[in-house]
Write a protein that binds this DNA or RNA. Structure first.
Length: 807
RNA sequence: GCCGCUGUGGUGGAAUCGGUAGACACAGGGGACUUAAAAUCCCCCGGUAGCGAUACUGUACGGGUUCGAGUCCCGUCAGCGGCACCA
């Protein structure tokens, strides 16, 4: 009989739909396993070939876990708020909710076509008011705890999306999503105080089973640095405070620099003799985009503040002060001390403005460039009491001294900024706050949640940077929940990242209308045991959701401080030619086409076989045939399998393969697991097999090719025999002692070079192996005129004979 | 500039703790079956020399450690990813 994948896949998908073998049971006595994949954004293009890679991998992991006796939660949902849908809606004059519904339907159909074992009854949709009620609820809790605040600040503004962006959404100075220029704009925005959690977000990484590069990238993004804040006296009577990681270089300070945005400048307006010049510089800086301002190798610019002088407490000397845009307002104090001898930026600035350069750490030539010591054993010079110390000694010594003298204090800084949380767009969760002229910002009572997104005529972004909701006067004008007086609703919406920051909790208890998640369900399922997703979300979704989860932990909603016990990441699928798949390149592969031509099981198998899961791989339509061929060969084994239990002749290969597949699935080495299965099948063809042998193959193959295996399971009578589907059987176990062959082929080396091989009994004693090696014809020839001076035997692997010419 | 990762046949990729480099596939070549094609089955497939046994050589490059290095150490080059005027 031919392997008719189209008929078989349809048949089993219908059966699974009906009998729900993937339903997770909250509270079951079995050990739980919660496997999670990043829920997709339901775009209009439908499923991309990139989606099945992580989905299939986690599907295989969870199918194996079920067979190992776990109560598995493997859910799916849709992260459906966001700009592409909104832009499509604007262009085609269809409501975004309608677009979203259609896209979700399409995605659902495609995901079911691939045979994933999702518990569909737990499906969530972030745009469903029953879902975003709780997104809004979490925001209100953040607001009540003072972690959501509104402030006016320069923000990233995408000129094309007409919307603010979080720092994490700006890549190389352009919008992460549309690639348009991002400029800085003063706007009043809702912010979330993620920086309050910076230290915990670093510290708690230590105990998590995340792949190392994710941890490193998160730590770099949070960017912790330790140093000191130093306060200097000025001739105006005001004090200025700087942050430095190198207080030991205080004796080398020859000037100070203040950021153009610093409020102190305005305060000094009357004291700065060249105010007009300074104001002009401030104005110019304000008109530069972040990209222009941050451009590499750019000339240092600045203006000296005439009339302002700062005293260096270490030397008692007065140094000039400048305004320059190389100092950022958002980091440290917005003022830095200039140490041109030992900071390249300061050196460039000092050189340009003719400022003195003092060497305080020896080892370089500060007349040519700043000397930044690579290790901390360089010696301090020209630095009073620090002279002769190494940098390593000088830093703590100076910190201590600074504190004793009352000049400043030790300080930790982070590059992480608070999260800009409002967006001037329609298709997002409304922020459930009301602005009352008397009471200020007032939260909506929780009983009034969800605050449903109103129907509007036009959801186009406005040129004045206000949300489309602002034009809905009926909706905007409301009464204050606090005093009952007239008040206005917040018209900005939440960013795309809001709904995805907690969705994994909703899966645990998706239909609860009383709570975000019940205590019982959360304590049973939490935390997620294994979360796989893309590297591109490391500093966005992954960091944001860890932050929200920690907050929910603090207010007692969840029982663990971290949401995900384990995090792995998959590589991208590239188009033919090794380029990123894109419509414009015309190299996009649609999973539909592969499924139509070869079937879902081939698609699943191939996307796992294609290469190392963590690395990027190039898609090749040609190579798919190999995976189909393998499934055909598995199918055809039914014709040659003889009656009988597990056979003696195949025992070793079967146990070896069970071991390999079991271990490889746990470490996501799906490609080598499949290679091992191929090797076993090749051996079955060479040696013949029994139905008992075939049974083991079917069980091992079941997570990879579930449709075909169930059909084979039925045809070979095992379904009737056990009264279960293959996927419901226990995972095969192996006996370590049976994984070894009775005889081993061992390599024989002479002076480290391979010269021959010999076959000896497994685990043969060293002298037996050496004797066998010396008896080998090829080795005998090598040994002529030589004497054996040493032997090295590696059990079951090789023997190395060290020969020397006879005297 | 800083941090991290990766360099293996024509191609995708395998190689526990340092132990037979190229598993498993794709492509290619040869053969069987067939009127023919597809499918299937068998054989070959890093390079050089040789009919062959075999020998030499080979994991980006240059050194080193070791009985033995794709794997460890030092240096160089190339590519990828992240961060980037963060004081």
């Amino acid at each position: 009989m031919k392997y008719d994948f189209a008929r078989i896949e349809k048949k089993w998908q219908a059966k699974w739909e009906e009998t729900k073998p993937y339903a997770a049971e909250t509270g079951s006595d079995k050990p739980k396993f919660y496997g999670l994949i990043e829920f997709p954004y339901p775009s209009g293009q439908g499923l991309h070939v990139g989606h099945p890679r992580p989905f299939t991998a986690m599907d295989i992991v969870t199918r194996k876990k079920r067979m190992e006796g776990y109560n598995v939660l493997f859910p799916i949902g849709f992260d459906a708020f966001g700009l592409p849908t909104e832009n499509y809606a604007i262009k085609n004059h269809i409501h975004p909710a309608v677009v979203t519904r259609n896209n979700i339907q399409n995605f659902t159909r495609q995901l079911k076509m691939l045979g994933y074992g999702f518990d569909w009854d737990r499906c969530v949709d972030t745009t469903d008011p029953k879902y975003y009620k709780w997104t809004q609820w979490i925001f209100l809790q953040l607001f009540k705890k003072g972690l959501a605040y509104k402030t006016t600040m320069p923000v990233n503004w995408c000129t094309s999306c007409k919307c603010v962006l979080a720092n994490e959404e700006v890549v190389n100075g352009v919008c992460e999503r549309c690639g348009s220029e991002v400029i800085r704009k003063e706007k009043s925005q809702w912010m979330l105080a993620i920086t309050k959690y910076a230290q915990r977000l670093i510290d708690d990484l230590d105990d998590l089973d995340y792949i190392e590069r994710v941890k490193i990238q998160q730590k770099n993004w949070i960017g912790r640095s330790t140093g000191a804040e130093l306060t200097f006296d000025t001739n105006t009577g005001d004090k200025v405070t700087v942050y430095t990681t190198r207080p030991d270089t205080l004796f080398g300070v020859t000037y100070m620099v203040i950021s153009p945005e610093h409020p102190l400048l305005k305060q000094w307006k009357d004291k700065i003799q060249n105010w007009d010049e300074v104001a002009a510089y401030q104005d110019a800086a304000a008109h530069k985009s972040d990209f222009e301002r941050g451009e590499l190798n750019k000339d240092k610019t600045g203006v000296r503040l005439q009339g302002i002088e700062v005293m260096n407490p270490a030397t008692g000397e007065h140094v000039p002060m400048f305004v320059s845009d190389y100092v950022l307002m958002g980091y440290g104090t917005g003022i830095v001390m200039g140490v041109p001898g030992h900071d390249q930026r300061d050196w460039e600035f000092a050189t340009k403005f003719g400022l003195p350069i003092i060497e305080v750490v020896s080892g370089g030539d500060v007349t040519k460039e700043a000397f930044v010591a690579k290790d901390d054993s360089a010696i301090m010079v020209n630095s009073g009491f620090l002279n002769g110390m190494t940098v390593k000694e000088a830093i703590p010594a100076m910190k201590k001294y600074v504190v004793e003298q009352g000049w400043g204090e030790e300080k930790v800084n982070y590059k992480l900024r608070d999260w800009v949380f409002s967006r001037q767009r329609y298709w997002g969760e409304p922020i459930p706050l009301v602005n009352c002229p008397k009471c200020g910002w007032v939260p909506l009572p929780e009983s009034e949640l969800p605050l449903v997104l109103p129907q509007v005529e036009s959801y186009e972004p406005t040129d004045d940077g206000e949300s489309p909701l602002s034009k809905m006067t009926d909706w905007v004008n409301t009464t204050c929940p606090c005093c009952g007086g007239p008040a206005k609703r917040e018209t900005d919406t939440m960013p795309q990242w809001a709904g995805s920051s907690w969705y994994f909790l909703r899966y645990m208890d998706p239909h609860n209308d009383k709570e975000l998640v019940s205590k019982e369900a959360e304590e049973y399922w939490g935390p997620v045991d294994w979360y796989n997703g893309g590297m591109e979300h490391t500093t966005l979704h992954l960091l944001y959701s860890r932050f929200w989860h920690k907050f929910l932990y603090d207010i007692g909603v969840v029982h663990t401080p971290e949401p995900y016990a384990k995090r792995t990441s998959h590589g991208m699928i590239l188009g033919e030619g090794g380029e990123k798949m894109s419509k414009s390149r015309g190299n996009v592969v649609n999973p539909n086409d592969i499924v139509d031509q070869y079937g879902a099981d081939t698609m699943r198998l191939h996307i796992m076989f294609i290469g190392d899961f963590e690395k990027a791989v190039t898609w090749s339509n040609e190579a798919v045939k190999g995976s189909k061929r393998f499934l055909d060969r598995c199918w055809n084994l039914m014709d040659i399998a003889e009656e009988g239990e597990l056979s003696q002749k195949n025992e070793a290969i079967i146990h070896k393969t069970i071991k390999k597949v079991t271990e490889d699935i746990d470490t996501l080495k799906m490609n080598t697991a499949i290679a091992a299965l191929m090797t076993m099948v090749n051996e079955f063809y060479a040696k013949g097999l029994t139905k008992g042998d075939l049974e083991q193959l079917m069980l091992l193959l079941s997570p990879f090719a579930p449709h075909m295996v169930e059909e084979m399971w039925e045809l070979t009578g095992f379904a009737a025999k056990y009264g279960k589907m293959a996927m419901q059987m226990p995972w095969p176990s192996f006996d370590e002692s049976k994984t070894h062959e009775a005889e081993k082929e061992m390599a024989v080396q002479v002076n480290g070079k391979l010269r021959s091989t010999v076959v000896v009994p497994a685990d043969a004693a060293d002298d037996v192996v050496i004797a066998a090696a010396c008896a080998d014809e090829k080795i005998k020839r090598q040994m002529e005129g030589m004497e054996l001076v040493k032997t090295i035997v590696v059990k079951n692997k090789l023997v190395n004979l060290i020969l020397k010419p006879k005297k």
